[in-house]
Design a protein around this nucleic acid. Structure first.
Lengths: 187, 187
DNA sequence: GTCTATATGCGGATAGAC
DNA sequence: GTCTATCCGCATATAGAC
């Protein structure tokens, strides 16, 4: 791995663990084994490096979601596969956690990839739901856009509850709950 | 307001806005107008003051939720009142945001009030759902505990989506979505 | 490209006077 | 109880040599 790549990977890990405010350039240097001068040669500073790291994480997250959405099966099966996919629940969502960082939300450049990630995710889920409705797999009373927002919110909120409890149980309960509710509307 | 109280109120505000890591003793002193010496006279340090602040916020949150749960009306009406209650959506949940702070989660003392808040909230919602089921207002296929976890998760995740988008829209959509799903099961 | 040196101010306190 | 002084290390760079 070359130097910029090592910096990006270490920054991604630290942003996930400690957030933007909690991540110092010094910690990035220690974790990556890169020297001070190299870091400031390749990146203009902490915000620049963070932006590269966030973009990378956002791309990966999108690709992993698409794996489940593009599987064969009914809409409900694909949504179930997505919600039940293996996740590092107690670590939380590496993109969602950034929304709690005021420096991220206050910076248009840093917030943009976060916004886009959730926007596309909701959009993609709404498409899956629309297909399911057309095929009669999902109750036509359900609005795709708002149901999609609900599903994404259950995941993000599930992480919050799991971290509060230091247990994956409430996350799993929340996922079970939404799946039962969605199945209820199936024909 | 006396000195300890001023410190607690300022700390509550800062924890909400900037989280634990992002809140410095210096910022608390500036906002409260209290001097350095006074702060360390009344509290042993940042963790001690944060604990007092978090406990206060947790109490208030619990009391506000109970206002809606103890209203007259069906289970669905009370849950709707709770979910649609006026909220400072873009500021997020002052308790939920703490779960993103590694120093909070790593400290049993600081995590405890956060855990307890969500534990009680889920418990209370499950009671409301159980009542609703007994009265035939809610489909008996819905497990109260997991449905309660789902509802709380929708709220917490709704805040995340709203902050990502810098708009209350996805929060409102997520709430609409879960209410439609819950109503679907009503008899 | 990478290294080391240097800089300013903040984070989070402790000490002791009043 | 409150105030001011003092402390050490970290946060976040910039400068210039190699």
């Amino acid at each position: 791995m070359d130097t910029p790549e090592r910096l990006i990977q270490s920054t991604r890990e630290l942003l996930w663990e400690r957030g933007y405010t909690g991540t110092s350039p010094k910690a990035i240097l220690q974790r990556s084994g890169v020297g001070q001068g190299s870091m400031y040669h390749h990146f203009s500073g902490k915000p620049d490096l963070a932006l590269a790291a966030i973009r990378r994480t956002a791309e990966e997250m999108r690709a992993k979601a698409e794996e489940q959405f593009s599987e064969p099966g009914t809409a409900l099966e694909r949504i179930t596969a997505y919600l039940r996919r293996e996740r590092d629940v107690l670590r939380g969502c590496p993109i969602g956690r950034l929304t709690q960082d005021p420096d991220i939300v206050a910076s248009p450049a840093l917030r943009q990839p976060v916004d886009e990630t959730f926007g596309r995710l909701r959009q993609r889920l709404a498409e899956v739901l629309t297909e399911g409705r057309q095929r009669g797999e999902i109750a036509s009373a359900l609005d795709p856009a708002s149901t999609a927002a609900t599903i994404v919110a259950v995941l993000q909120g599930g992480y919050v509850l799991a971290r509060a409890a230091d247990s994956t149980e409430p996350f799993d309960q929340a996922v079970d709950g939404i799946l039962v509710l969605l199945a209820q509307g199936a024909r």
